[in-house]
Write a protein that binds this DNA or RNA. Sequence first.
DNA 1: TCACGGAATATTTTT
DNA 2: TATTCCGTGA
Length: 640
Amino acid sequence: MIDYKKHLNTSQYEAVKFDKGPLLVIAGAGSGKTRTLTYRVARLVDEGVPPKSILLLTFTRKASHEMLQRASNLLDDRCENVSGGTFHSFANTMLRRYAGYLGYNSSFTIIDRADMENLIATLKKEMRLGEKDRSFPKKNTMASLFSRSINKVKPLEDIIYDDYPHFTTHMDALGQLYAAYDTHKNRHNLMDYDDLLVNFHRLLKEFPDIRQEIASTFKFVMVDEYQDTNQIQADIIYLLSGEHGNIMVVGDDSQSIYAFRGAEIRNILSFPDCFPGTTVIRLEENYRSVQPILHLTNQIIDQAAYKYTKTLFSRKKGGSCPCLMRTSDENSQSRFIVDKIRDLSLQGVRLNRIAVLFRAGFHSFDLEIELGREGIPFVKVGGFKFMDSAHIKDVLAHLKVIHNPDDSISWYRILLLLEKVGPKGAAQMFNDLQKKGGGYQGLAQVKLRPALAGSVERLKSLFSVLTPETMTIAALGERIVDYYLPILKNRFDDHPRRERDLEQLLSIMERYGDLEAFLTDMAIEPPSASIEGTFSTGESIDESRLTLSTIHSAKGLEWHTVFIIWTLDGRFPAMRSLHKEDEIEEELRLMYVAATRAEENLFFVCPGQAYDRATGLILNRPSRFLEHIPEDALDIRYTF
DNA sequence: TCACGGAATATTTTT
DNA sequence: TATTCCGTGA
């Protein structure tokens, strides 16, 4: 028997014991949110609710894994069978089953952000839009624009007018591109991340009996990080649980920092209106930080205009006052941190208990150089992704066309690898191959210029030996890698390292028996960024490294000592957010998230002045979020 | 039409 | 840092 009362505080216990109906848990930073969800899952299963009928939705695979793992440890293995996962993976599962209803084939391919961008860029070129126009948005920006329009459920025009007014001149072209992008996906059986949600939502909305079927399977619905849900996700939740109303959502409005991706803080703020009769429980005891840090973070978040009021408190005694350190310039900021880290090491604080956080990836460049010079080992998180590297994508493309022969993106990628084949050539060949019936049978019949014959022959013979019916995935992968190695060596100077990555990929393939499952996982639940082999060249994978991270990537984590750099007004909050009220609010919440990562020591660092290229202004004041904090909460010092 | 080199440029990113 | 875009020569 689990002794719930003993392991939980009063509010946590109340949430865990809560039975039926809508429940909103406002879980402050470090207040045991995961613990509460975990215990509730265990409790339900413990009391005989079939695990399959519990749906637990999260934003990351890691979070969902961790919770079910911990629930299993509490109770038993039954907890592993709880339904759910990430929103995207759940949507995917349902869509594979019902794709036909939406005019899709169930072997659709999921395309990632890079694929999305490349497809848009190719279409732009084909349609000859914005040629040689420097003011035309970059592919990255276009992808954001389109995605934003979907996630905010707003027409593209509104997005452009409101958020990207400098692109209004390109309105028509962008509209055409958007339409072309959409048609292309439909025609080639492709779905991007947004489509997974949108189409699942459509399925529930447009086919009531299917909704009924799905909704009746899940008697208890739980959602983690509710403040990060967007409109579509909230609608999905409503459609799934509106009828029985057994819905528990957990989140912290003060930590909503994904509005730029469509997250709607309104979802959590107005949850009680959506589900009448909602019980609200607040978790306000913080188990992470010492009281002086909470004293400060409470004051930071007090400046927010819209929020659920809550005041975090801690029983952790001691700790010193957080400090704002003003330095002369960027480099002295870096040197301050290096010195301080030296001090801390002498006091016995290990490097992996320290983090430096910043607003944007490039804010740490100078520091990285300084750390390198001083020989202080560090990891920068959020940067490089295993799955994004070209060589991995190249190999995967060959598998993808086996599963979905219409996958134009992968075909392009494959064909572009051939010598003397560029964008034009690839487009031509892909067209021909589709006319001949598509897929690799189509490829076999394509007639070619003699100059190309050689390399294409090799590709044809590769496909002729790839027989998914009789071969394991790893075996397919091996053939493909054999074929690909010469290309790899030709293209990349650092091929030895990349070759090792491919070995890794092959060993991941060993774990799968089903091609579709493998490809889906690689798209929406890829292996974590720091795959072994990428870092471990000789030296042991010593976990004693300093962490450098964007604040976004630091959410949910904690360290003994935290430095927040570039807390200069104009950098943080960023210049571009200053004229929009809700964007400033989000910057404030971001500052709050950053500061609440610290357990014992918290330093804000602010270089004396910096030039802002975009506006031509000299920035020289500390962040406005820190300016009005009384002296007893924030200690201001100078290192000139 | 392709391949390559150099210059310019930059929010944040769970899927 | 690293990615993207453009101009050049083959």
